[in-house]
């Protein structure tokens, strides 16, 4: 009774789908989070009667044969790259990316990772860091006596001081794009790492070569759509129950077999 194993693959797939949905819902308020989606694909087919087999002495050929599938597997859990809505916070270091592009972050071990979470902070020395305290490249330090910080759409950071008319340029943030953003490896804490699949990072100024622009005073919301997740959850739950029913049916058929004698 292969139906038992096949239904088990179906239950495992639906179970994984519920896990992905719950992860999305748990992150519905995570800054710049992109919803994930589970993709499934069928397993291989048993060739019970090979199509094209000669069926009779006169050369009649079986047109279709019999192929029976063996269930389902998870093909991918892919990130849906979508612009989240921008939330106005008014914070001078809240920097949302409108369009494509990632901030470049340097971890304490020297590794370069990427994020879209632009809720930036200042550390004790005035250096601009992420919420977890990792440095945003290029290093930009804000002087203690700066009155106000202004970041324009191109990512240029200006500091204004008391008694000075013009602003002082402290540095410029850049954006990194990837050919295949879905290929980035998610590390948690809103961080991503470059992989073979994502392609080389393309660093450049905001607004050029398809890169987005910066918006000071905003953060990017999570792109999770709660209504869609809930409808998906209903589908996944019913799918799970359907597969469980198949297991029950296969079990009862086996039971009937054992009762013959």
């Amino acid at each position: 009774m292969r139906a038992l194993n096949i239904a088990a693959t179906g239950m495992a797939a639906q179970n994984m789908r519920v896990e992905v949905i719950s992860h999305n819902l748990a992150n519905m308020n995570t800054t710049a989070y992109n919803a994930r989606r589970a993709e499934f694909s069928d397993l291989h087919y048993q060739q019970i009667r090979r199509p094209g087999t000669v069926n009779a002495a006169d050369g009649t050929i079986l047109p279709a044969g019999v192929q029976l599938g063996l269930g389902v597997r998870a093909a991918a859990v892919s990130m849906e790259v979508q612009q989240g809505s921008l939330d106005q916070t008014g914070g001078s270091l809240d920097l949302a990316v409108e369009g494509a592009g990632y901030f470049e972050i340097t971890l304490p071990n020297g590794e370069t990772v990427y994020t879209r979470d632009g809720a930036l902070k200042r550390d004790g020395e005035g250096l601009i860091v992420t919420s977890d305290g990792f440095t945003v490249s290029p290093d930009i330090t804000i002087p203690d006596d700066a009155r106000e910080i202004s970041i324009n759409a191109d990512g240029e950071v200006y500091a204004y001081f008391n008694g000075q008319v013009g602003g002082q340029l402290l540095g410029q943030f850049q954006l990194t794009t990837f050919t295949n953003e879905k290929g980035l490896e998610a590390l948690g804490s809103n961080l991503y790492r470059e992989t073979e699949a994502s392609g080389q990072p393309n660093v450049g100024d905001a607004g050029e070569d398809g890169r987005g622009i910066f918006r000071q005073g905003y953060v990017e919301n999570s792109s999770v759509d709660a209504v869609r997740e809930i409808t998906d959850l209903i589908e996944a739950q019913r799918g799970y129950e359907l597969n469980a029913k198949v297991i029950t049916a296969a079990d009862q058929m086996l039971g009937a077999t054992t009762q013959i004698r």
Binding site: R2, L4, I6, G71, L242
Partner: peptide, 12 residues
């Protein structure tokens, strides 16, 4: 039944 199970397993 195997084909029914495969169809239901691939409902998504």
């Amino acid at each position: 039944l195997q084909s029914v199970a495969n169809n239901i397993a691939n409902i998504s």
